[in-house]
Design a protein around this nucleic acid. Structure first.
Length: 746
DNA sequence: ATATTGTGACTTTTT
DNA sequence: GTCACAATAT
C-alpha cells in the first residue's frame, strides 16, 4: 500500500502526493521523471482522487507510453487496458475512431505517415499540373503541416505574396484530396480531434467531465496545437486556439493537469515544439505548484557540473541545478584528432579498452550531431571487429515491401485510398505503365472520383491490364473477407504476386523475410492490442493505424550486444555508462544552420546538455581539426561549447600529438589571455614537448629548406609514420614524412 | 520496362 | 563523398 512511495526523495514525494491542483514538475535529466509520473497516477487512483477511467496520460512516443503502462500495472492491481494512456496521435486516433461520423470521416479512414503524405502531395501537384520546381513537395508539406500545427486551416491562412497565396490554394486542394480519399495525415489527426471537441459541445462536455486528471509527459516538446488540445480537454477556455483560460479555482468539468517537463531538454523547436508552453501553462492555469526535481540518479558529479555550467549560458531558463550524492567521479576526457579519421580511431581504441575492462558493449554509446558522422565511426568499428548498432534509418513499417503489402490491405479496406492505389497498381509490374496511369488520373479527375472507381468503370472495355488489377483487388476482397487478420495478410502477399516478385529478385531474400515478419506482426498485434480492435473500426483498420502510428523498431536487435551509435536527438531519454560525443566543432556542433534560426545557438546548447547528461560514469568529448564533409576537407575550430565547460572538470588527452596553438578561433589570437578556454591540460600555450608532429598543426605556416614557405593542409599517421601535407604554393603540394623532412614553424 | 547516367541536396525527427 | 530521385537511353 504505502510502499508505492517508498524510496522517493522529498521532492519526488511532494510531486506525487500533491493535492488535486494544476502542477508543473520541472524534472531534470535523470531525476526520476517517469517514476514520478507513473507513481502519481497510481497514487491518485489508490487514494480515490481518480479512477482509472478518469485519467488521461499523454506522451510523445509509443515507447514512453508503453513504459508507463508497464510500470503502472506493476504498481496497481488494475487493468490498464481501458485507460487513456498513449501518444497524442494515438489518443486522437482513438477519439476519431469512436466519433468518426461527427468528425466527418469514413469509418475506415486511413492514416498517412510522412512518406505517404509526401507521395500524396506529389500526386496532387502532378494532377494539377503544378511545377514542382516552384513548389517543392517537401516544402509544401512543411508549409501545410506547420499550418495545421498552429491550428490554421487553408481557409484561414494568411498569404502575403503570390507564392504563398498559391501555396495556400494548394493546401486547400490537398485538404480536399485527403477528404475525398478518406485519409488523414499526422497533423490532421490532432487538428481533427481538436476541432471535433471544439465544435461539438456535448462531446466536449462528455470528455471534460470524464477526465478529472490529465498528465503530460515531456511537456516542453508540445506544440501549439497539442497545448490547445490539452486546454480544451482540461476545460480551459472556450477553445479558441489562442484564448486564455481564466486562472483560478477549478470548476465542474475541469481537469487537473499535471505537466512534467524540462525546458533545458527542449530540442525539438525545429519541428514546432514551443518551450513557451511551459510558461503559458503556468500563467494560464494559475499553477500554484511548481516542483523541481534536481537530484540526479544517473551521472557522477563532474558530469553534472559540466552540464550545469554549460546550460547556465542559456538565457530565459526556468532554472534548475542538478546535483548528485554519487561523488565527483572521473574527469571528462577531452581529445582532439588531426582528422575525423584520427578521432574515430581514437574512439575505437578507447572503446576496445573499455570493453577489455569489462564495460558492457551496450553500455557504450557513440553520439554525434548529424547522421553523416556515423560513417567514419562505423568504418573504424568494422575494421576493428567491434559489434555495433546504428539507430535511425529505415524502420520496419517503412520498408517498401511492407508498405506495398499494406497498400493492398488498405485498398481492400478503402477503395478510395488513391495513395495505396498508386503504390500498387503496377507493383508487381502488370503492364500498367505511365500512359495508362495518366489516363486513369485524367478520368478520375474528370469524374471527381477515386482512381479505383475510374479504373473500375474504365476497365469494362475488354480484358485490359487495368481490368485485371481491379479483378485482383475484388478477388482479394471477397476471398479475405472472412479470414482473421494474419491470414488475410498472408493471402494478400501470395495472391497479389508480391511473394512471387521478391522470390525472383536477386536481393529479395531479406524482403521475403520481412513479409513473413509482417504476418508475425499481425499475430502479435492481435495478441497485444486485440482487445481495442473493436472500438477502432475492426482488426484491419486498427492494424493499419498501428502500422502508421508505430513505425516499429529501427532494426531487429540482432542477438549480440553491441556498441550504440546514434544522433544526440535519438539519445534523449537514454543513458549509458560511457558516452563518446564526437565532432565538437564550430559549424557542426553547434551546427552552422542553427546560427540563422532564432535562439538557434541556445537550442544547440540544450542539445549538448542532453548529450552530456546521457553519461553515467565516463564522458569523452572529441573534435577533429579537419573533417571530410560533403566530399570536401573542412578546417575546423573546436566547438564553443568546449570553452563553456569548467577547465577543472576536464582532462585533455590528445591521442596522436599535442599540437601548438595555431589558427582559428579558440587558439592563439585573442583567446590566449583569457584562456580558461583551450589551455590547461594538454594544449594551449603550454610549451610543446618534442612529439610526433614536432608541434605542428594543420593550418600552420612552415618553412622547408628546399621548397620554401608553405602551409600545412593535412596530416596523418603518428610516431615514426607521421606525415603532413604541405602546400608550398608555386612549389606544389607535397606529402612529407616528419621523420625525414626538416620543417620549421613560421 | 528496365538500366544507366546525371543532378542536386546535405541537421536534428516522432507521430 | 554518397544517396536519392529523375530524366534519359536501350
Amino acid at each position: 500500500m504505502s510502499d508505492l512511495l517508498a524510496g522517493l526523495n522529498p521532492d519526488q514525494f511532494a510531486a506525487v502526493t500533491l493535492p488535486s491542483q494544476h502542477a508543473l514538475i520541472l524534472a531534470g535529466a535523470g531525476s526520476g521523471k517517469t517514476r514520478v509520473l507513473t507513481t502519481r497516477i497510481a497514487w491518485l487512483i489508490q487514494h480515490g482522487q481518480a479512477n482509472p477511467h478518469s485519467v488521461l496520460a499523454v506522451t510523445f512516443t509509443n515507447k514512453a507510453a508503453k513504459e508507463m503502462l508497464t510500470r503502472l500495472s506493476a504498481m496497481l492491481p488494475i487493468n490498464t487496458r481501458g485507460m487513456w494512456i498513449g501518444t497524442f496521435h494515438g489518443l486522437c486516433n482513438r477519439l476519431l475512431r469512436a466519433h468518426y461520423r461527427e468528425a466527418g470521416l469514413p469509418q475506415l479512414f486511413q492514416i498517412l505517415d510522412s512518406g505517404d503524405q509526401l507521395s500524396a502531395i506529389k500526386r496532387l501537384l502532378k494532377n494539377l499540373g503544378v511545377d514542382d520546381e516552384k513548389f517543392p513537395p517537401r516544402e509544401l508539406m512543411h508549409f501545410i503541416n506547420s499550418h495545421k500545427e498552429q491550428g490554421i486551416r487553408a481557409g484561414e491562412a494568411e498569404a502575403w505574396d503570390d507564392w504563398t497565396r498559391r501555396r495556400v490554394a494548394l493546401y486547400a486542394e490537398y485538404e480536399a484530396q485527403c477528404q475525398r480519399e478518406g485519409v488523414v495525415d499526422f497533423a490532421e489527426l490532432l487538428l481533427r480531434a481538436y476541432e471535433l471537441l471544439n465544435r461539438n459541445e456535448p462531446l466536449r462536455r462528455h470528455y471534460q467531465t470524464r477526465f478529472s486528471h490529465i498528465l503530460v509527459d515531456e511537456f516542453q516538446d508540445t506544440n501549439k496545437l497539442q497545448y490547445a488540445w490539452l486546454k480544451l480537454l482540461a476545460g480551459r477556455g472556450p477553445g479558441v486556439l489562442s484564448a486564455d483560460g481564466a486562472p483560478g479555482a477549478l470548476g465542474a468539468g475541469q481537469a487537473v493537469v499535471f505537466a512534467v517537463g524540462d525546458d533545458d531538454q527542449s530540442i525539438y523547436a525545429f519541428r514546432g515544439a514551443e518551450v513557451g508552453n511551459m510558461r503559458d501553462f503556468e500563467r494560464e492555469f494559475g499553477v500554484l505548484n511548481v516542483i523541481r526535481l534536481e537530484q540526479n540518479y544517473r551521472s557522477h558529479g563532474n558530469i553534472l557540473d559540466a552540464a550545469n555550467a554549460l546550460i547556465a549560458h542559456n538565457r530565459g531558463r526556468l532554472g534548475k541545478n542538478l546535483w548528485t550524492d554519487a561523488g565527483a567521479g572521473e574527469p571528462i576526457r577531452v581529445f582532439e584528432g588531426f582528422t575525423d579519421l584520427d578521432e574515430a580511431r581514437f574512439i575505437v581504441d578507447e572503446v576496445r579498452e573499455l570493453i577489455r575492462d569489462g564495460v558492457e558493449r551496450d553500455q557504450i554509446a557513440l553520439l554525434y550531431r548529424s547522421n553523416a558522422q556515423s560513417r567514419v565511426l562505423e568504418h573504424q568499428l568494422f575494421s576493428a571487429g567491434v559489434p555495433y548498432r546504428v539507430h535511425g534509418g529505415l524502420r520496419f513499417f517503412e520498408r517498401q515491401e511492407i508498405k506495398h503489402a499494406l497498400a493492398y490491405l488498405r485498398l481492400i479496406a478503402n477503395a478510395d485510398d488513391d495513395t495505396a492505389f498508386a503504390r500498387v497498381v503496377n507493383f508487381p509490374t502488370r503492364g500498367i505503365g505511365t500512359r495508362s496511369l495518366e489516363a486513369l488520373q485524367e478520368a478520375a479527375h474528370r469524374a471527381n472520383s477515386s482512381l479505383y472507381n475510374a479504373a473500375a468503370s474504365l476497365s469494362g472495355k475488354a480484358g485490359t491490364a487495368v481490368g485485371g488489377f481491379i479483378r485482383l483487388i475484388e478477388k482479394l476482397r471477397s476471398e479475405t473477407a472472412a479470414l482473421p487478420l494474419p491470414e488475410k495478410v498472408e493471402h494478400i502477399i501470395d495472391v497479389s504476386g508480391l511473394r512471387q516478385h521478391y522470390l525472383g529478385e536477386k536481393e529479395g531474400g531479406e524482403r521475403l523475410e520481412n513479409l513473413s515478419e509482417l504476418i508475425n506482426a499481425a499475430v502479435s498485434f492481435l495478441r497485444e492490442d486485440g482487445d481495442r480492435t473493436a472500438e477502432e473500426g475492426g482488426e484491419v483498420a486498427a492494424f493499419l493505424a498501428h502500422a502508421s502510428l508505430e513505425a516499429g523498431e529501427h532494426q531487429a536487435g540482432a542477438g549480440e550486444t553491441a556498441i550504440q551509435l546514434m544522433t544526440v536527438h535519438a539519445a534523449k531519454g537514454l543513458e549509458f555508462d560511457a558516452v563518446f560525443l564526437s565532432g565538437l566543432e564550430q559549424g557542426l556542433f553547434p551546427h552552422e544552420n542553427a546560427a540563422q534560426e532564432r535562439d538557434g545557438l541556445e537550442e544547440e546548447r540544450r542539445l549538448m546538455y542532453v548529450a552530456i547528461t546521457r553519461a553515467r560514469k565516463r564522458l569523452y568529448l572529441g573534435w577533429a581539426q579537419t573533417r571530410m564533409l560533403h566530399g570536401q576537407t573542412r578546417y575546423c575550430a573546436p566547438s564553443i561549447f568546449l570553452d563553456e565547460l569548467p577547465v577543472a572538470l576536464l582532462s585533455r588527452i590528445t591521442p596522436v600529438a599535442a599540437p601548438t596553438p595555431a589558427y582559428g578561433r579558440g587558439y592563439g589570437a585573442g583567446s590566449q589571455a583569457t584562456s580558461q578556454t583551450s589551455s590547461s591540460g594538454g594544449y594551449g600555450q603550454a610549451p610543446m614537448a618534442a612529439d610526433a608532429y614536432g608541434g605542428l598543426r594543420i593550418g600552420q605556416n612552415v618553412e622547408h629548406s628546399r621548397f620554401g614557405q608553405g602551409v600545412i593542409v593535412a596530416a596523418e599517421g603518428g610516431g615514426n609514420d607521421a606525415r603532413v601535407q604541405v602546400n608550398f604554393g608555386s612549389a606544389g603540394v607535397k606529402w612529407l614524412a616528419l621523420a625525414y623532412a626538416k620543417l620549421t614553424p613560421r
